[in-house]
Design a binder for these strands. Structure first.
Lengths: 140, 140
DNA sequence: TTGCGTGCAAAGGTTTTGCATGGCA
DNA sequence: TGCCATGCAAAACCTTTGCACGCAA
């Protein structure tokens, strides 16, 4: 969104490339740090956070606060033109995260907006519950 | 849920009473600490957290992680028999929290369960977005 | 040269944990 | 007496910030 006087740096390029090569994938800041540290191209933690902040404000990356006590997750979404925003389902038992691409939810959003006056933001909304596999294991 | 060998202590009684007297109210751990500190009946921070953990596992209290960077909120829900479980709507702009009592959502839950295999847990699911007042102020 | 970006280390805030003591049953 | 609960302080954790230096333009 905002394009100021911003420099191209090794760190910026590498971070963006790494995220862009892994769309629909969630990374924590620690994940990213570790990736570059292991690859011998270390990027400082503060820089990771500052670059992520920049990419978020540009709209290229989304930030999700998924679980209590868990660190935030970052996901590359590019220009956001190709993919509609999707919701997340998080299994409370196994911790797995699912992407929900569903037409039905549009109807539900409209209902909430029109009847309850509330405009839902998919980027921060996470449905918690039990995934199919865990339900079967628990016989629910 | 789990009833082990647990003692009745001043701290346990006072914390439970305080929460039960304020149903449908969200407290942070710091709120609770401050309440008792100000009342001259101090309860240590660690004890607050440990008692909350106990009440949560008993099902008397729910924990919500509402905002990124914000501390967790705790809410008394009693035995959960009198009130149907409700969802929460949290406004990202003004921070206000709303309770959503809505029949439509039942339909949506069923869809998610049947078509996507995921069983939603209302107690931990929070919808983020913009409330009616904030939408009007922003002209959205 | 200008000023944004980087990295380190330190600070910030919330929650957890170790350990000795205290209190219920 | 036996065991759980408490409280303090320290640790753990994630994220932000201050500051001097580095580097893009």
């Amino acid at each position: 969104m905002a394009e100021k006087n911003q420099y191209k740096t090794r760190q910026h390029e590498q971070l963006l490339s790494y995220l862009a090569e892994n769309p629909r994938t969630h990374f924590t800041a620690a994940d990213i740090c570790e990736h570059f540290r292991a690859g011998g191209q270390k990027i400082g933690t503060a820089t990771i956070y500052r670059q992520l902040e920049r990419l978020i404000s540009e709209g290229q990356v989304k930030k999700y606060q998924l679980g209590e006590g868990e660190s935030a997750c970052f996901e590359y979404v590019g220009d956001g033109i190709q993919d509609p925003l999707c919701y997340h389902l998080k299994c409370e038992r196994c911790g797995m995260l699912f992407h929900l691409q569903c037409g039905e939810i549009t109807e539900f959003e409209r209902h909430i907006t029109e009847e309850h006056g509330f405009l839902i933001d998919p980027r921060r909304t996470v449905f918690y519950g039990l995934c199919e596999a865990c339900r079967k294991e628990q016989g629910i």
